[in-house]
Amino acid sequence: MPDLIAKPALGRAPMTMAATTLAEAAWTRITSIAPFPGQAGSISAALAPLDLSFPPANRFVQSAFGRIAWSGREQAFLFGPEAPPNLAAAVTDQSDAWVMLDLTGPQAQAVLARLVPLDLRAATPGMAFRTALNHMPLLVMVDHAQVFRLLTFRSMARTAWHELQDALSGIDARLGLKA
């Protein structure tokens, strides 16, 4: 056990408005896996015991053991389990580099439409996009049409939270007009 106290990126309680919740996800091991040229197949083979395979662009693969999401050109993030040893890939620890926020609820897409330039009509479950959260780098994973996991730079966590909260509170106020 480490003696140093580990701290979350934000340490904030979840916030709910308009039946939509923004919450900081618990710490998870994140490992970047960037196969060396021509090695994506061997990575998939090595991931097979985890019921995972190297994901195609804009997708993630989920299993009972964990998840692996496309995170950029020739690169994926493995969430949960340790990476298998001796992969023919560049492997780095990214667990502390990102703040993970879960956006869940009927207004989740509307919130993202205010900050993310993507056409979310294409956001079907199992999709993972590298894009931007306003001016911040973003990896967004679609668990469900109303459930999104957002990763942005850990140092920008407060801004990300603030901007998501702002967007949600504006939507909540709009809904108040109709109610």
Binding site: A34, E74, T92, Q94, D96, A97
Partner: peptide, 13 residues
């Protein structure tokens, strides 16, 4: 085609 991969770890450390 070079056998090199790189990624930012600024935020990790």
């Amino acid at each position: 085609d070079w056998d090199v991969r790189f990624i930012s770890v600024t935020e990790q450390w």
